[in-house]
Write a protein that binds this DNA or RNA. Structure first.
Lengths: 347, 347
DNA sequence: AATCGCAATTCAAACGTTTAAAAGTGGCAT
DNA sequence: ATGCCACTTTTAAACGTTTGAATTGCGATT
């Protein structure tokens, strides 16, 4: 399958394989003239080293692993594509490639991760979507295997490498924006899954609330399982038809915010006149859904690129202290937020 | 890095490495009792074979390669994520993993592909987005390296493995739908890049036109470079402000169709009253952009899954005849198409 | 003239598997 | 006793690299 071997190239040049190997590695023990001659021949014959052999002796694979998150049948967004694009871009700069493992039906994500690590197919892994008691992180930490998490643990975030969106700050910013527009009754549409970002985002909101020290402010939280559309719609309508309907509802992420827009329209509420809605992520559809969703740009691609850089550092330098990095999301102000209505519209 | 080796496992069991290797491979030359004993021990000790060693001797990597298409700074859609998800799902069923190579700045996609093939890192590759004279296919065919293209060549499609959306039929269907609603003046917003799907889709439209044999039917095509938003907008406005404005404009894919919707709104045209618009792909935003884009579901994830199956067949069975597969897109009728207006609105 | 030092190169082992070929073990017919 | 066969296991080579240790060649030093 592969073309030329080192041995063949060496015999063509009339030197030993060791010389060729060292020459190509740029070893200064090899005479400059020889190095050039070898490089030239390698180039001319199109020599490409066999990675399996190299990997076997060096113990390094040159791969970074990524276990594809298991997703429902109609998961819809650009997140994964952007993330993988950024990861690939970041890795290729350092000479690494990306290896993607999919979880077969009926097996756990952890078991696949374990297999990736123990088969020696990857020098490090990227772990997305961190849960509250994430067994993947526990495993990797214990095994001292290089990894960077996209997201962080709530307790013990100091103990692992991560890059995360600064959603605490972003959600505080969302609150301030709306508070300054006169809103006092807030709603948050959240998920009931045990992802840590749920807590961080809600915390951002509550901390900003506390800072205002305004007893008239209220916050109602409605949550539903992440991929359960029916329950999500029900949760949203609980807020919309509550005794005292919030004048501003924040979606934990854009899919939820878009559903809020849909349900508000269905209920006869005009956004932003009767209701302000804010999301997070800035997915493509956020720009198209009327009247244009105000949200935060999470910059997935750049984040992934940064994660790649961090992971390479962890693999090659094994820093003593865990690496942490917060990415500040940027407000994308569209048309779904506005001043508090003078008087709530009756439904 | 890796845990237990075969040798260690063998010595624990008091047999030779060959026996253990064969037992784990399920070789019937090994006594059933021994096979069971080995399997048990392997399981108990958590033995995971080193892939590099296995790959070195077998010459197979267990990987399918994918060279990430080079993309502009703000490419936006779910295509890549869906495609990779489907590919991963399809591959894992057959015991393959996915390996993603990114093209570094300043290098060609072909050179990266060549490297992937010749380093022995992949047993086969998937090639997306086929161009008119695609040098990647030429290389792979000449090298007899297993691959499946997503999309096909115009000439010589018979000579390579591919899976493609049946966009000829779909665009014919779009034409018929609109013709039956009374439309006679059609516009097509296309791209000027040399991708083969451009021709196939336009062909679908023209063939359906020919079938009607109606001399009053006209078709104006406006094209712009794929990622050039300014030129795209200009091309669309050329159609919208033409002497005889089309009453139905078809976008080669949804991004274009959505831009048509935006420009129509800006020009004061109401969709579908004054203008019908149809797209292709059914991206997420198609559902959110008012009034809801009528389009075709390309089912990327399922296609990718099927591609995985085809590629594994090519790798393992080396069929004499190239494999071809057409996927029929399904019309997603939303609200952007309607009957031809009685009288064109003046702009 | 013998020895040393040093640069350049080669030798050979190792990485952890797979697999063709050889070898060992009993049982059974001759 | 001998040979043969079927079944099971082992031996050893091979895959294509990297790399520590050994070797070579040669000018400089004694």
């Amino acid at each position: 399958m592969a073309g030329l071997t080192l041995r063949e190239l060496a015999s063509k040049l009339g030197v030993s394989v060791a010389t060729v190997s060292r020459a190509l590695a740029g070893d200064s023990a090899i005479a400059t003239k020889t190095r050039e001659r070898v490089a030239e021949a390698a180039n001319a014959y199109g020599y490409v080293p066999n990675v399996a052999a190299r990997q076997l002796v060096s113990g390094r694979s040159g791969f970074v692993g990524f276990v594809m998150p298991v997703r429902g049948p109609n998961f819809i967004d650009a997140y994964l594509g952007e993330f993988l694009t950024g990861l690939g871009e970041g890795l290729v700069e350092h000479g690494y490639d990306l290896f993607i493992a999919t979880v077969p039906a009926g097996r756990s994500e952890l078991s696949v991760l374990r297999h990736v690590v123990e088969s020696g197919r990857a020098d490090g892994v990227v772990v997305p979507r961190i849960g509250e008691a994430d067994e993947r992180l526990g495993y990797l930490i214990e095994r001292r295997f290089p990894f960077v998490a996209h997201g962080r643990l709530l307790d013990g975030a100091a103990g692992h490498n991560w890059l995360d969106a600064d959603s605490v700050t972003a959600f505080g910013e969302a609150f301030d924006l709306l508070y300054d527009l006169g809103h006092r009754h807030f709603g948050l549409v959240s998920i009931s899954d045990s992802m840590t970002f749920r807590h961080l985002r809600e915390r951002g909101l509550r901390e900003a609330m506390t800072r205002r020290n305004d007893p008239t402010v209220t916050l109602d939280v409605a949550a539903a399982p992440r991929f359960d559309r029916g329950a999500t719609v029900a949760a949203i309508n609980r807020l919309l038809h509550a005794e005292r309907r919030p004048t501003a509802i924040i979606g934990l992420f854009d899919e939820l915010a878009l559903t809020i827009l849909e349900e508000a329209a269905r209920a006869g509420l005009s956004v932003p006149r009767d209701l302000s809605v804010v999301g997070f992520d800035n997915i493509t559809a956020a720009a198209y859904a009327p009247p244009g969703l105000t949200t935060f740009e999470a910059n997935t691609r750049e984040s992934a690129r940064a994660i790649a850089g961090m992971l390479v550092e962890v693999i090659e330098k094994r820093p003593a202290e865990p690496l942490h990095r917060l990415i500040r999301p940027k407000l994308v102000a569209r048309a779904s937020h506005g001043p508090v209505p003078d008087e709530p519209r009756r439904l």
